[in-house]
Design a protein around this nucleic acid. Structure first.
Lengths: 247, 247
DNA sequence: AAGCAGAGTTGATCCCGGTCAAACAGCAAA
DNA sequence: TTTGCTGTTTGACCGGGATCAACTCTGCTT
């Protein structure tokens, strides 16, 4: 059963906060950047905003694929799971990313909010029709899908051939490249948006190994932690880069 | 340097066998299935057939992305490589599959023929333009790209969370599902189109581990080999299935 | 302040898969 | 036939990361 249309109330005891998507900030999203007013309007007509609280599941593997969405703010994880519970995060989604599986009736992946997340959801069928009517949107989606595929392939290399040290360092490195901010000290600061467990599920490792590799990086003064475990300072970018891309 | 337009002659000492793609068998390909005559003609105008012998590299990582192609017959492997030589096969391509990276100026992956392969190649720019003119083709490509992405994510789960036994069994299983043929004995026979080394690069393992897992499957009479190492008979599908999808 | 729960770290140990090396099989050329 | 080359199998050994367990740290509740 798809969960994009139903905000689960088990914990919050609140009614779903959905509304016609009128502003939607979609113009900020990569899917809709450089989109004409006509196209934006068409999207708005079928769009509905939804707030998904952190930890909440957006869509279960096995659900009918009836919805897709545009991620407005927050972050989602896309996970594949084995029958015995082993789990792999196969994608992280950030603002502007497209959410959902088109052209298929059943989803095979679970989508979960890792922080409070704001989605602009569309019925899948209506969205697919829309794509046919607005080729520029379809082109945009094709671009993004190909980019996702390249990213997925990059991660196959990591999962198949890199050791724990390289994977953890690479994760920090990628985060820094994507969302690092330079502090007053001139050093890159990175907010790590996921727990150790999620890092492990993303990197194909265990929590303990991730933790050990992080302390190793810290001990070698490649990185340092500030404000608890979730903010990381890159003290030695050259060394980090060397670990990520060894000769 | 892209190699789709140049058939390397180092070994064969033959001139490139290219020709205007007049029949192209493209209608058989998934990309072009159910395509109108107009669309097919447009494709033919920019298409050129190319025969790539087994082992030949079609395109190097780092090449300018100037060509894409439709795989007519044969098989290609798409590999990602680390600076120190570690290699991961991130995709196998079979007849009907689309080859190439669109919307990007530089390729990051190497494409190699694993058997003699027949391609119908297109200049990337012309192909991208064509996609804009024929939305049905673009839709088709979007479908296929999304399917590839799903496949890539499935493989992330395998590379990140499955053990050697599960990966090897899963590989045989997938091959059987895709291209198995039932013999006179009622058993599924599968032709394995790749070497042990390529299996290892695909599965994120070493040659030795792949070999050991195959002999283990053979010893347990789950599979058997016929005609050397490249044809495999599935003697116990239930057991194989159990290994692939444990509780 | 005490108690508690969840996340993260650290330690001890084990085992799967990597590494290195040798044997083996198939095949083509001499 | 022999020789050599390449791909595959098998053996012995080792080490990186998993597993199990204890401990620390933080924030939250009472």
């Amino acid at each position: 059963m798809a969960r994009l249309d139903v905000l689960p109330v088990a914990r919050s005891h609140e009614e779903p906060k959905t509304s016609r998507c009128s502003g939607c900030a979609v113009r900020d999203s990569a899917l809709c950047a450089s989109m004409s007013d006509t196209e934006l309007t068409a999207l708005r007509v079928i769009g509905r905003r939804r707030i998904v609280p952190a930890g909440q599941i957006v869509s279960w593997a096995g659900d009918a694929s009836t919805f897709c969405a545009n991620l407005v703010s927050g972050a989602l994880k896309v996970t594949a799971t084995l029958a015995d519970g082993r789990e792999q995060i196969v994608g992280l989604l950030f603002p502007g990313d497209f959410v959902g599986q088109l052209f298929t009736d059943e989803t095979t992946l679970t989508v979960t909010a890792i922080v409070d997340t704001d989605l602009c959801g569309y019925p899948r069928a209506a969205f697919e029709t829309l794509l046919g009517d607005y080729p520029r949107m379809e082109r945009m989606l094709l671009r993004r899908t190909m980019a996702s595929l390249n990213e997925a392939r990059e991660r196959m290399l990591s999962l198949g051939r890199k050791n724990a040290q390289e994977r953890v360092a690479g994760f920090i490195f990628d985060l820094a490249a994507r969302a690092g901010s330079r502090g007053a000290d001139g050093l890159l600061h990175v907010s790590i948006p996921v727990s150790r467990g999620e890092m492990a599920d993303y990197l194909g490792l265990t929590i303990e190994t991730v933790s050990r590799q992080l302390t190793r990086l810290r001990t070698n003064e490649v990185i340092a932690f500030a404000n608890g475990d979730r903010v990381c300072t890159i003290k030695n970018p050259e060394e980090l880069s060397e670990i990520v891309n060894p000769d």
